[in-house]
Nucleic acid binder design. Structure first.
Lengths: 211, 211
DNA sequence: TTTCCAGTTGACTGATTGGTCAACTTGTGG
DNA sequence: CCACAAGTTGACCAATCAGTCAACTGGAAA
């Protein structure tokens, strides 16, 4: 076959990039095709609609992110270090995006979900699925932390939701203020919520800095 | 004059309602006009563009919300009760919206900000202004709580930001999951973040129930 | 060699988009 | 009574929107 399906891949990558930087409503099928170097016929050969392309692009974006999360939340890493490492990863990714695009773009999943959850049920469900997956990393880290006696006994699943709510909130705040530094508050917020005192948390951070 | 400018008011009210339920991108000037019972010429008589209408609608929506917040955060109310009362107000408003529209719509300000902050600078700035105003209520409540010795000494301004990030996050989570009950987690999250133990917080809640 | 088909192309559609405009209505102040 | 201005109206615009389609391409299987 022609380009070994890399047209489809380019459409997915371009779509999530543009939607992340702008919004679903502001990005037309035409400009996605143009930036991806594809014709509209190809677009509709691979995807039945703009909405379906978006669902697929969300999944693709997740698959790109997953290896980084798997590494950060590896059982090899001490549980509380996974969380602080994640906070740094979030900052790092937003920083890179800002360097490229000139603005704090926030979380692509979250922005899409916020824009379309009341209108497009398929995208809402996909967003919910991604949210679940991301919370699983947090929940696992919390369970391990409890088992090792690092944090008080608690409901790790609902706590993971709580923490992730904060992640979404902080990222949104940073986007609204167009200020990366707001993301720096994420780590202390999260550690306070799971009941780790300032000093202990500081110790963890120092440990992480050494490694 | 004709309708004493109530056309302008209807345009503002209709706009924020539709955008809240759907999104900026999904709501056209035509449908705003239709639902408001106005012609397009009237729309552009009052507002130079869709973007300007939206900025004005945000301000209008704020003016509608403000009396409720002023009442809830009145110096007459004990500081921690203001916060728990606010959490209940949030739940109540989302519950009403869901009854009317059938879906959890989240926060109108936040949804607009999330969709447009990277694209429309005027809307971004307006969103940031609203965020500031809302945080002021939190900050004042926290300062009073510190003064009364109800919570530990802390930086109330940045703590207010932190709390409000959680509010935005929880509301977004509730919208994505289309589940009101997630908002119930907001109160304990907030009280944990300001360093109020579960029992003390429970006591505050009981006090509030009596009044 | 022929068949087959995933992928490509560009022209096309009808509906909708945000926005314009000149003519009109109507209450008010002089 | 007139003039003025705020507000209204409906026709109109070019551009863009998501989506369609028949014809074409080229490599692989038979």
């Amino acid at each position: 076959m022609k380009g070994e399906c890399d047209t489809k891949q380019r459409l997915l990558d371009t779509a999530i990039e543009l939607i992340w930087e702008q919004s679903y409503g502001a990005v037309s099928v035409d400009v996605i095709c143009e930036r991806a170097g594809a014709r509209k016929g190809s677009f509709y050969h691979f995807f039945p609609s703009k909405s379906d392309l978006t669902v697929a692009a969300i999944e693709e974006h997740w698959e790109k992110l997953r290896p980084e999360l798997d590494r950060m939340f590896s059982p090899q890493v001490p549980p509380l270090e996974r969380l602080s490492g994640y906070c740094e990863l979030v900052y790092e990714r937003q920083s890179q995006k800002k360097k490229k695009f000139g603005r704090v773009c926030g979380c692509a999943f979250t922005s899409l979900a916020s824009e379309l959850s009341t209108q497009d049920e398929k995208i809402r469900q996909k967003s919910q699925q991604i949210l679940d997956r991301r919370c699983r990393y947090f929940a696992a880290a919390l369970r391990d932390a409890v088992r090792e006696g690092l944090i008080p006994e608690q409901d790790c699943e609902s706590k993971a939701r709580e923490l992730f709510g904060c992640v979404m909130g902080v990222l949104l705040e940073a986007k609204i203020e167009n200020d990366l530094e707001i993301i720096r508050h994420l780590k202390p917020t999260i550690f306070r919520l799971i009941g780790v005192g300032e000093k202990r948390f500081a110790g963890e951070a120092a440990l992480h800095a050494k490694v």
